[in-house]
């Protein structure tokens, strides 16, 4: 199949995907469908395979078995055209600290082949609330400022599928609120948002669906109750949270007062 010129899609389908690192099984027979206009939460204890699944969706990692389809395409079929529709904000922010905020954005705008990279960078800086710090070196930015800049970097090219790995880590309440508002904006713009997080209280009410990864397998969380309660039940069902379920946070869960 020839590579497409553009590879836009409305749905991502993960079908029976497994991923092994040597003899260690990170994901085992995972199936998941994500549609445009949805925010999907990937929950689970540390080491459950959330980052591996995000890596697979981002086409950085290849599945050992099964396939991921983006509309009609697989990553191998669509290649660079598909990558133009993906955005991935990992826990590490993928910025060059020695460059200024503007230079970082212009560099990535150039890589994505965007027209008028300078104007796009300034627009992104405005969205990040960093217009007045445009020419400051990123090394001097606070975690929150870097996070906002990194988010705008990821969204520079208007990706269809936006992936977040622990996006709330290190953010204060105000920055969390800004990020949540941005997530809602992405949903309204019919993007597909997949985020892995331990901050259950922050994303409660934001997610359209939540799935829990447990020992490399994925399970949909049931309806009813707060996200934390549903998460606890999901963990306890699998016998992961043998202790602690029902009397506080499960493993790796951040409690925000």
């Amino acid at each position: 199949m020839p590579h497409p010129e553009t590879a836009d899609f409305e749905q991502v389908t993960v079908s029976d995907v497994s991923r092994y690192y040597g003899r260690r099984r990170a994901l085992s027979g995972v199936s998941l469908t994500c549609s445009a206009g949805q925010i999907i939460g990937l929950l689970g204890p540390n080491g459950a395979g959330k980052s591996t699944l995000l890596g697979l969706l981002a086409t950085i990692t290849e599945p050992s078995a099964g396939e991921v389809r983006y509309g009609d395409w697989t990553a191998r079929e669509a290649g660079a055209a598909l990558r133009a529709r993906l955005g991935f904000l990992s826990h590490d922010l993928q910025l060059y600290p020695e460059l200024s905020a503007r230079e970082n954005l212009e560099f990535f705008a150039g890589l994505y082949g965007l027209d008028h990279p300078t104007e796009r960078a300034l627009e992104a800086l405005t969205n990040a609330g960093l217009r007045d710090r445009a020419d400051d070196i990123v090394e001097g930015f606070s975690r929150g400022m870097r996070q906002r800049l990194a988010l705008e970097r990821v969204l520079l090219h208007s990706p269809r599928l936006v992936l977040f790995d622990e996006p709330f880590t290190g953010l204060d309440e105000a920055s969390c609120g800004t990020l949540v508002a941005r997530l809602r904006g992405l949903r309204a713009a019919r993007r597909i948002v997949v985020l892995a997080t331990h901050d259950l209280d922050v994303v409660d009410g934001v997610l359209d669906r939540a799935v829990i990864l447990r020992r490399g397998r994925v399970h949909e969380l049931g309806p009813g109750g707060t996200l934390r309660e549903r998460y606890q039940i999901g963990l306890a069902d699998g016998g992961v949270a043998r202790r602690g379920a029902g009397r506080g946070a499960g493993p790796g869960v951040v409690v925000r007062p």
Partner: peptide, 18 residues
């Protein structure tokens, strides 16, 4: 090393370029 710090390599590899 610059690409390794802050996972910038992943940002590069995700870009739709050869």
């Amino acid at each position: 090393e610059r690409e390794r710090y802050h996972d910038a390599l992943r940002g590069l590899l995700l870009a739709p370029v050869d």
